[in-house]
């Protein structure tokens, strides 16, 4: 139970941090915010890597490998597209 409370604490505090930080993002950057946060949600890749690599059973390896593919698309696609978009936002020179 102690561990559950500890990670619940982290969860709740992270939600607060999220609200604080993200309310400061201006509307003109809302699309990059979505693609950038998509890339961040690709963090499940680390769980996927462990499932795919520990070779516990065929099923877990298959599930893990599929998850690695999905999560990598999110990570690579998300960061690249966000970078591409943000590069376009320029001031008048």
């Amino acid at each position: 139970m102690g561990e559950t409370i500890a990670i619940l604490t982290i969860f709740v505090l992270a939600v607060f941090v999220g609200f604080e930080v993200i309310t400061k993002v201006p509307p003109i950057l809302h699309t990059p915010l979505m693609s950038g946060s998509n890339a961040i949600s690709g963090i499940t890749i680390i769980g996927a890597i462990l499932s795919a690599g520990t070779q516990y059973s065929t099923l877990t390896t298959v599930l893990g490998t599929a998850a690695v593919v999905f999560a990598t698309i999110n990570v690579v696609g998300g960061y690249l597209v966000t970078n591409r978009m943000l590069d376009m936002f320029k001031r008048k020179e």
């Binding site: 990670i7 982290i10 969860f11 992270a14 939600v15 941090v17 999220g18 609200f19 930080v21 993200i22 915010l33 979505m34 946060s37 998509n38 961040i40 949600s41 963090i43 499940t44 680390i46 769980g47």
Partner: peptide
Amino acid sequence: NNVLIISGSLVGAS
């Protein structure tokens, strides 16, 4: 896993 929880909460809040 803390990093998953933190990242997930950030995205969820966003």
